[in-house]
Design a protein around this nucleic acid. Sequence first.
DNA 1: CCTTGTTAGATTGTCGACAATCTGATTGTC
DNA 2: GACAATCAGATTGTCGACAATCTAACAAGG
Lengths: 240, 240
Amino acid sequence: MKTEFSPIADTTRRAEIVALLRRAILTGQLEPGQKLNELRISEQMRVSRAPLREAMRELVQEGLLASIPYAGTFVVDVTAKDIDDAYSLNKVLDEFAIERTWPLRDQRFFDEIDRRHEAVKQATRALDTTRQIETALQLHGLIYEWADNSVLLETWQRLTSRLQMYFALHLHARNEPVPVEDMHETYVRLMKGKDMRAAQRYAREHIDIDFEELLAYARGLEQRESKGAKADRAGRNNNG
Amino acid sequence: MKTEFSPIADTTRRAEIVALLRRAILTGQLEPGQKLNELRISEQMRVSRAPLREAMRELVQEGLLASIPYAGTFVVDVTAKDIDDAYSLNKVLDEFAIERTWPLRDQRFFDEIDRRHEAVKQATRALDTTRQIETALQLHGLIYEWADNSVLLETWQRLTSRLQMYFALHLHARNEPVPVEDMHETYVRLMKGKDMRAAQRYAREHIDIDFEELLAYARGLEQRESKGAKADRAGRNNNG
DNA sequence: CCTTGTTAGATTGTCGACAATCTGATTGTC
DNA sequence: GACAATCAGATTGTCGACAATCTAACAAGG
């Protein structure tokens, strides 16, 4: 037989802790700048500190946490500039991803983009903001998964996770009804069409719309100078 | 007084272990696919396994190691496609980095680019291949440091470290005299000039030259299927 | 009042030992 | 001889305890 098996699930506590913490950060359960007390968390999770600490090191490298030796590990405090940086880079990467994906589109691609689009619409109807963000990013991520470039995909995933965190926080703070209109209809149609340039152009503008409001919100928070921000700056000194 | 102090050095064993391992991988002391035995390494370094394991988790997220639960942690086995992926992405990023750096160039920039160029020339004269790679990448990295985009810089650093590893391995394997000619003269001149498009164009071609040979070498190794390659594929399953 | 030295408590970093899992050889069965 | 079951050794994952370091409160001195 020629059945395809996907890799088996990670069965280490470490992996589960990583997943738990990541989700907590990305959904805004853990706020930016907040300190993570190892003993407290390990007791809550009924785990020793060893796997917890290893999990935290992973998340530090992933860019979601920042640590200062002997002081603690904190949820990163993303500044408006970080958002802006990610946003401008995203525009460039999108263009590249679409270019690479374009000749590789096939029926499976079309089915998948429809499936993800459907997921967004469903979350929108259900007024589930968190899920809406998640599905929208997954829809957007398809071009990165399809571009057949592992480094590009990895880059986008890193970029994305931090954006998701801020999107979630943003909506959580405003706590207003989700726009019911579907902004992705055009995007999907263009990605299935024949004009690559048009798709690239629209992706750029599409990003603009999504980020505009987020940026304004982030700038509004700029006065706060939490400990997480300091950790973010001090944490990365790989440039010896 | 108004003296500026740089952050104090990390004084944890973990940080030193990370630096040690990273250097060993980037210089080719540790070969791709090689398994890292925790007990053996911890005894050699005279540390316990706890900080060593934490250090290894960091390097896994950094993309230099890959781990399989209960099987081990391995030096990543970069394939020709990985190189190709990184190379094509690098072209896009270079264009972006130059665009962002361009209006920010000042006297300090010119001084710094000269300094780094000088370091390359010195390493070339000294026939120190490892140092030559290191300095060349640092010269190239200036546009990323100057572009004032933290996400971009981070992306480039990740990209770079894997390339450095393979460059080192490549030269180590061939063990032939270093080209004495200076390929960076034109690049530096253009980066100091007034024509941004020309600089971008040259950067593209410059990358082409650097990577051409490396890619051919990597393709030649493609027959080998070591355990590290499997680990590389199995290690990343963040797409739930 | 401000600064400096001291100290107790809390938290992070590290260690050595134990449990869980994998690998490869060995044995027994057909 | 081929194959499955078993077992011993090695290696990774996890635990609980101890050491190193930080923080904040307090006292002493100017």
